[in-house]
Design a protein around this nucleic acid. Structure first.
Length: 784
DNA sequence: TGCCCTCGGGG
DNA sequence: GTGTACGAGGGCA
């Protein structure tokens, strides 16, 4: 039999005849498959091991072979021993022992990934083999692999099962599990209720019968899965929802993994994709789907259940449906399938492994091909900070006809141009970075990181080309090119920010140093040509066009971009024209209106003035919105006047009290290290004293009555009666001023100024702003 | 400014 | 399962 699948997840199992690698996947027509491989063995390398350890290992029954190999490591080719074991789970202990005698390589790669690297698998593969009968698996097809090869990627329809639990607050007992299933075409709904033991048994059977690729729900990682694990344990039952009948495992107190499927919490999907202040299922459903939860008071779930079971059941199924629709709406699984394609990983591995593992996926394969040793991931967690991008000082003022140029994939391009790699790092290198680190030129040795990035860059260009040529599949190519971009930036992120297995801070710091040098050189070249450079950040330059009309400005921008690109062997793109452009003289803060390219004409660019806080109150949010609107209209005077008026009103207490309410959830008091210092706990305690209802996990609302002293005094706000205390209006006014000043700062009106309430609402003239700016430190080169 | 702690979602 | 994994915001030194 021959079958093509997209890999969903991979794992291994211990069987009597030995270890079996299991590849779980999905065919184009939606059949689930597990393909089993027998006989793959774990291994790692020892660098120039002493004879004694080799002798000891050769007598060890767990060791099934030792081979001599030559690997490039730390600047030269070294004699290494490949140690092959029988059992992957024993690798960590052999690694630890061996590390006491010599350097150990490639001994920390998850076994299923080792398999994928060695067979150089992509995310979609063709498998030849025999179909077997094995009812341990829930998949449509079970087969043993005879051979396996890569095929072009495709996106099969994924079956997603979303579930939600309603359980007692009194004793934790599960009342009902609601389920909604999506098979790529339509939704199907089910629910399970009855005796708890029965519910648990039926739930496992349901999942085995439906055999979903993805399991989702809202906050299932922290709540439902944790609760289920506990309840199954209580009845001494197996929570056997894996495609091989295994139980889900919690990984690092964070995610869940289960063999053969992907567990993706819709809440996490929301967090990753959107930036929302409120992330409750109700708020997110309203925002994304325009539809909310059903009407059940979950703070009184036991009562609700006793009173009307059908209502609670319907509510529960609806929650499962909402979580599922949110996940679909975000198209997150689609995006991850694209990333899986470019990283050559199964879906689960892209979703549930760190970004450094994505880079590993390409780098380890290339290192193996080139006989380059793969170091262990360092133990040090510290990230020595490396200097970032260059940010050009911005002169306060209003400018016209500003051309914005920026480098296409600056960091990846720099890595390629200067051949930056751990394999080219050398004291007698001919390329020297501005911080004095040397690299061999491409002619002497092409680095494997630059090679991979060059391939990715070409791939992205090709995908972009196809996007234009093949409008019918535009979205498909667009998804892939975006995934390639993400992966390229991940490379830089991994190299620059931490002790990644293949690199060190010298390498990361050299990349940013080259980039800073490049952008500074370009700025001075432009200035030498008599152009006024207004701003620049890391990979962009803003300069004033010598012309005051669009046609000639665009023509000029294109010409400059072309000239510099040729000179620098990097691609500088002419991104946009801003007319006007304004800054008050602080880096990373500016506003402007786009007039070119045509598609973006009229759009406003606002950078650096956004805020988002969880302890926000309505008045704050509304005030910011109002002032922003005025600024965007270009009515600066009105904006500043408005900001003052709002702050004044708050100071005088002329605001509705409900607009000052701050709210947050409160857990069991015992779970806090320092409950006395927390405003939410204080509010909850007072609520109890007042004889009002409180239970852990409830959202508590309060008003700050005194923010002075060493801790805030707060009073609970119930909304039902008149609030008997006086809010600390000064505190609220300061909070509002602090927020609005982020905007009015642009016009020389700071927080103190807004607070002082002086009526002389003079806006600074540009001349005054210049004076203000000169008081700042004179450093020309400031690093973030 | 940087480090450490906590929250967030869910019943 | 060759593992140990959130991200933002606030308090405090």
């Amino acid at each position: 039999m021959e079958i093509e699948i997209r890999l969903i997840s991979a794992s291994y199992s211990r069987e009597e005849e030995g270890v079996v690698v299991e590849l779980f996947g999905k065919t184009r027509d939606g059949k689930s498959v597990v393909a089993r491989y027998h006989g793959f063995k774990p291994y790692f390398y020892l660098v120039e091991p002493p004879y004694s350890i080799l002798e000891k290992l050769s007598k060890d029954p767990e060791v099934c072979g030792i081979e001599d190999v030559k690997l490039w490591h730390r600047g030269k080719i070294r004699k290494c021993s490949k140690v092959i074991l029988h059992s992957p789970w024993k690798t960590p202990s052999y690694r630890r022992t061996a590390m006491e005698f010599c350097e150990v390589l490639a001994a920390d790669i998850p076994f299923h990934q080792r398999f994928i690297y060695d067979f150089d698998l992509n995310s979609c593969v063709k498998i030849r083999g025999n179909v077997i009968l094995n009812d341990r698996y829930t998949t449509d097809i079970v087969m043993d692999i005879e051979s396996i090869e890569n095929v072009n990627d495709f996106k099969p329809p994924l079956k997603i099962l979303s579930f939600d639990i309603e359980n007692s607050m009194e004793d934790g007992r599960i009342f009902v599990i609601g389920v909604t299933i999506w098979d790529g075409k339509e939704f199907r709904k089910e629910h399970i209720t009855g005796e708890e033991r029965e519910i648990l048994e039926k739930f496992v059977n349901l999942i085995r019968r439906v055999d979903p690729d993805v399991i989702t729900g809202y906050n299932i990682d922290n709540y439902d899965l944790e609760l289920l694990s506990e309840r199954y344990k209580k009845y001494n039952m197996d929570f056997a929802i894996g495609r091989d009948g295994s139980k889900p495992q919690r990984i690092g107190g964070q995610f869940w993994r289960v063999h053969g499927r992907v567990i993706e919490d819709a809440w996490w999907a929301v967090k990753k994709e959107l930036r929302l202040k409120q992330e409750t299922l109700q708020a997110v459903s309203m925002e994304l789907l325009g539809e909310g939860k059903e009407d059940v008071d979950r703070t009184k779930i036991d009562e609700e259940w006793r009173a009307n079971k059908d209502k609670v059941i319907s509510y529960c199924i609806k929650d499962a449906e909402l979580a599922l629709r949110i996940l679909l709406k975000l198209r997150l699984l689609d995006k991850y399938m694209d990333l899986a394609t470019v990283t050559k990983f199964p879906l689960d591995d892209v979703i549930h492994s760190g970004t450094s593992t994505w880079v590993d996926s390409l780098l380890i394969r290339e290192a193996d091909r080139k006989k380059v040793g793969v170091p262990l991931q360092g133990q040090e967690r510290k990230t020595r900070k490396i200097e970032g991008g260059y940010v050009h000082t911005i002169e306060p003022g209003l400018y016209h006809w500003i051309c914005v140029l920026d480098f296409k994939s600056m960091y990846p391009s720099v890595i390629i141009k200067y051949n930056i790699c751990f394999t080219t790092l050398s004291k007698d290198g001919d390329i020297e970075s501005p911080i004095g680190v040397k690299f061999l030129s491409r002619e002497r040795r092409e680095g494997i990181i630059p090679k991979i990035l060059k391939d990715l860059m070409e791939k992205r260009d090709e995908l972009k080309k196809r996007m234009k040529e093949d409008p019918e599949h535009r979205d498909y190519y667009d998804g892939l090119q975006k995934a390639v971009k993400i992966l390229m930036n991940t490379f830089y992120g991994v190299l620059a920010s931490s002790f990644y297995r293949f690199t060190n801070p010298d390498i990361g710091a050299s990349i940013t140093a080259f980039a800073r040098e490049t952008i500074k050189r370009i700025i001075s070249q432009l200035e030498d040509e008599g152009l006024r450079v207004v701003y620049g950040d890391t990979d962009s330059v803003f300069f004033k066009s010598p012309y005051e009309d669009l046609e000639r400005t665009v023509e000029f921008g294109k010409k400059i971009a072309k000239e510099i690109s040729e000179r620098e062997q990097l691609i500088l793109e002419f991104e946009k024209v801003l007319e006007p452009f304004f800054s008050h003289g602080a880096k990373k803060r500016y506003v402007g209106r786009i007039v070119w390219p045509e598609e973006q004409r009229g759009e406003m660019v606002v950078r650096g003035y956004e805020i988002r806080r969880t302890d926000s109150f309505d008045l704050l949010t509304e005030a910011q919105k109002t002032v922003f609107e005025k600024i965007l209209d270009g009515d600066v005077k009105r904006a500043v006047k408005l900001a003052r008026e709002i702050v004044d009103k708050v100071k005088r207490g002329e605001v509705p009290i409900e607009k000052l309410v701050i709210s947050r959830t409160v857990r069991d008091f015992k779970s806090y290290k320092n409950p006395d210092s927390m405003a939410n706990v204080q509010a909850a305690r007072k609520l109890i004293k007042m004889g009002e209802e409180f239970f852990p996990g409830m959202k508590v609302a309060w008003i700050v009555t005194n923010a002075h002293g060493n801790k805030q005094d707060v009073e609970p706000y119930t909304g039902s009666k008149k609030f008997p205390h006086k809010p600390d209006y000064r505190y609220y006014a300061r909070r509002v001023a602090e927020t609005l000043a982020r905007i009015t700062d642009v016009f020389g009106v700071d927080e103190d100024n807004l607070m002082s309430g002086k009526k002389q609402a003079n806006l600074m003239t540009f001349g005054e702003m210049k004076n203000k700016k000169e008081k700042k430190p004179k450093t020309l080169f400031d690093f973030d």
